[in-house]
Design a protein around this nucleic acid. Structure first.
Lengths: 244, 244
DNA sequence: CGGGGCGTTGACTTACCTCAAAGGGAGTGG
DNA sequence: CCACTCCCTTTGAGGTAAGTCAACGCCCCG
């Protein structure tokens, strides 16, 4: 049982729905097919149909869409405990690609197993519905960020959000965190050019707000950074189980 | 029973999950509390907690976020058959505001009724999970649009997407559709200024692609508009029930 | 030692914004 | 029936944030 409790996904879902032993066991069975993937090689290509979903247990991945002109928009990054490609399963065909940022470990979940688990374990379906809603809230915040903030605020907001998400799984704090992303990743995520990302990072560093260097993010002045970004972590908050 | 079958939400969900009579009846009960709202007065304010959700049966609404500096980003528009504020219920507190664009009719759904319906009708929860995923796919496409397309392509893509969505509920075609939005709505949705929206609309009109005027959108050259926008409606497609 | 990926910086261009002003249509009140 | 206002649209002039192009440095790895 202790193995089950330690899965990052289990911990995340338990924050919303108090899961019974039977439900935890179902969740555990979904983790059976462990697989590894190397950085840079896509797990899922946009346009593919009848894909499996994955539960990420180690490493970082990004979900993105490629435009016909070759430009890329990263929609979101996933960290341990996050679902990958759940939407692809439900919508039958994948609207996005998924690329491991570093080498990763993930459990493959067949569409049929997932649908069956939901059918027999309604509270599990509820918990996943909650997780999907939380993901959507992040995408929405990201949308607002790109639509209505300038490059500095976007960058600040992005680095702060990532910090909070990592802190929730014990991988970061208000001091900073390890971050394997390149400036190209940041550019594609924030709708900027890589050149401009570099300039923005320099400005933030020289203003004494945050340092992004050598795979590590250091918050030099957390409060001022929060002010610059208008960052409000409410949409990430865990307010405790809604379902007893 | 025929009343049940005619609800736009029921029609939408049935495209994904073949619902039994019992499930349709549960869905019908959720439609009990019919209410009207006038254009412009918010249904839900961002930051409110313990809100009810709504099922929109008539009219248009928009979901948006206001920034501290007063600027606004519209995340999405909802049309009949769409859920309003579902995420607010699941996440306990609303991360966005909801404003009727015109006078609307909607059924109020209490959080407790919704959760109970899901618990007793797992396939209904599945159907809603699918609907949420579809909404998320639209937000993702919107994000890509704002992040990686210029103003003309954004506008073209937006008008085309709306056309397809309306066509799915019988309110539009490849010829065009009625549209109650102002240029300010378009600006807030596309991350542009209202002035620039006006210029973009003029360009598209003078290029013989699409005309937005007097509450009506007319596609003057559908194919060329699709090409300009790189529009691929795959993410909106109804491929038929996934669950028999 | 050479090459490729990533980071850094400068010079120039551009898409979009802001400010400003004016015109049309619908509703309202005199 | 006119005058007024409000909301939306339209257009022009000038400014700026961010993009593009180009070059160079660093470091790791084959």
């Amino acid at each position: 049982m202790s193995i089950i409790q330690d899965s990052p996904l289990t911990r995340k879902l338990s924050a919303f729905v108090a899961l019974s032993d039977a439900e935890l066991a179902v969740l555990d069975r979904l983790h059976q097919r462990r697989r590894s993937f190397v950085a840079g090689r896509d797990l899922v290509h946009q346009g593919q149909s009848d894909q499996a979903a994955y539960i990420l247990s180690e490493g970082w991945v990004c979900s993105y869409k490629i435009q016909p002109d070759g430009s890329r928009q990263i929609v979101d990054f996933q960290i341990p405990g996050d679902f990958l490609g759940l939407r692809s399963v439900l919508l039958h065909t994948s609207d996005h690609s998924i690329e491991p940022v570093v080498d990763i470990q993930a459990a493959e979940v067949l569409a049929s197993d997932l649908l069956e688990a939901f059918a027999h374990t309604p509270r599990l379906a509820m918990a996943v519905l909650w997780a999907v809603s939380r993901d959507e809230a992040m995408v929405v915040e990201h949308l607002v960020c790109i639509g209505r903030r300038d490059a500095n605020a976007r960058m600040a907001h992005f680095l702060l959000e990532l910090g909070v998400r990592l802190a929730l799984v014990g991988m970061g704090s208000k001091a900073g965190y390890d971050c394997p992303l390149t400036q190209y990743h940041l550019a594609d995520a924030l709708g900027l050019s890589a050149v401009h990302v570099n300039r923005v990072l320099r400005q933030l560093r020289e203003a004494g707000l945050v340092t992004f260097r050598d795979g590590h993010v250091t918050f030099d002045d957390y409060e001022r950074l929060v002010a610059l970004a208008d960052f409000d972590p409410a949409y990430l908050d865990q307010t405790g189980p809604l379902l007893k």
